[in-house]
Simulated assay, not measured.
Amino acid sequence: MAHAASARHGRRARGLLVPGAVLLALSLAGCSGVPGVYVVEKAGHASSGPGGGEKFNATAFAEQVWASKVVPTAQKDAQDAATLLPALRADQKGASARYGKQAGAGSPYSFLVRGTGTVKDVTSGNAVGSMRLDIPGAGKTDVNLAIGPAFVGTAVRDSVGFIGFGQFNNQIDYADAAAALNNKVKTTVVRDLDPASAKGKKVTFTGAFQLVAPSSVMITPITLEVAP
């Protein structure tokens, strides 16, 4: 009797556990394509990037798209700072929708911007150095240009409009792509910059930033020219 009751109890317990496990598996599978929720491989794929089954090489991806797509897109689509920055201060929501791009619903807006200005101050010696610029027409916005050696955020990846999470098999590869693009800024755009001599000089740039507050922006340069 006791053994029979135990067996019936075990069947009932197993009957309750199995559906729960199935639901958990389905939930995880459903979230594998949602940025920032789970880092889960898509079914049937190894960790890889766009168009391949091999392990994703973020450095190779950045090399492939930088000169051929990222730089031309920035040069073609960047808004003039004298137009974009005052617009964001006057109507953040409307200007964001008009000029910006989002990586996903609820993500911050990213923008491509161009401008010419004079270097007012240089902050170096930190992991994230910057130059503060005086740009005619930018109004009261505090404009800063990142100069490294570390570059943070995903503005370059998210602002160009042709790199999306759906091209990658997981969140790690998607994040690595952003980091590799930032590293291209370090190794190409600001490689020959001498921060110590930059103050007072005129710079011309295209770049990307994510909007935290319209009163101050930190732009990651995609192209940069410093006058002698």
Rank of each mutant, 00 (worst) to 15 (best):
V152T: 13
I172T: 15
A178G: 09
A179L: 12
R157I: 01
I147L: 11
G148E: 02
G139K: 11
A127H: 08
A175K: 12
A138F: 03
T116V: 11
L84T: 10
L193S: 04
D192R: 13
F111L: 02
L133G: 07
F162H: 12
R132N: 09
A180Q: 05
S110N: 13
A150I: 01
T141H: 08
R132G: 00
A103M: 02
G104K: 13
A146G: 12
Q92C: 00
K120T: 14
P149G: 07
G161Q: 01
A90F: 02
A177K: 10
G117W: 00
A90R: 09
G115N: 11
G200F: 01
F162C: 13
A138M: 03
A177T: 12
N182K: 09
V119W: 12
V190R: 08
G115W: 09
G94P: 10
T154M: 05
G148A: 04
F151N: 03
T154N: 13
G164K: 10
V189G: 07
P108C: 06
P136M: 05
Q171H: 11
G139P: 07
S110W: 04
F165S: 15
L84C: 08
G104C: 04
F165T: 14
A155E: 07
N169V: 14
G148P: 03
T123K: 15
V113G: 11
G200V: 03
D158P: 03
K199A: 15
T141D: 04
G139W: 08
K120R: 15
R114E: 09
G153I: 01
L112E: 08
G153H: 05
S110V: 02
P136V: 05
Q102S: 08
A155D: 05
L133W: 01
F111T: 03
T187A: 13
I135S: 03
G200I: 03
L145F: 02
A95Q: 05
G106W: 03
D176T: 09
T123G: 14
R132Y: 00
S110T: 11
A103Y: 00
A105K: 09
L181M: 12
G137D: 04
A103I: 01
S107W: 01
G139Q: 09
S96L: 03
F162D: 13
L84E: 10
T187K: 10
D91Y: 05
D176M: 14
G164Y: 01
R98W: 02
S197T: 15
P86Y: 00
P108D: 08
R114V: 02
G106A: 08
G137T: 06
D121L: 07
T154P: 05
G200S: 10
Y174Q: 05
Q167F: 07
T118E: 15
V160L: 09
I147M: 11
G94I: 04
D173L: 06
Y99W: 09
S130Y: 14
N126V: 10
G125E: 12
T118I: 15
K120M: 10
K184V: 05
V113P: 11
L88C: 07
G100P: 04
P149M: 02
G125K: 11
L84W: 06
D121I: 01
F162G: 15
Q171E: 14
K186S: 15
G137C: 07
K186E: 12
G137K: 06
N169W: 00
N126E: 14
D142E: 12
P195G: 08
S107I: 00
S197H: 11
F111Y: 10
K140D: 15
D192C: 04
A95G: 08
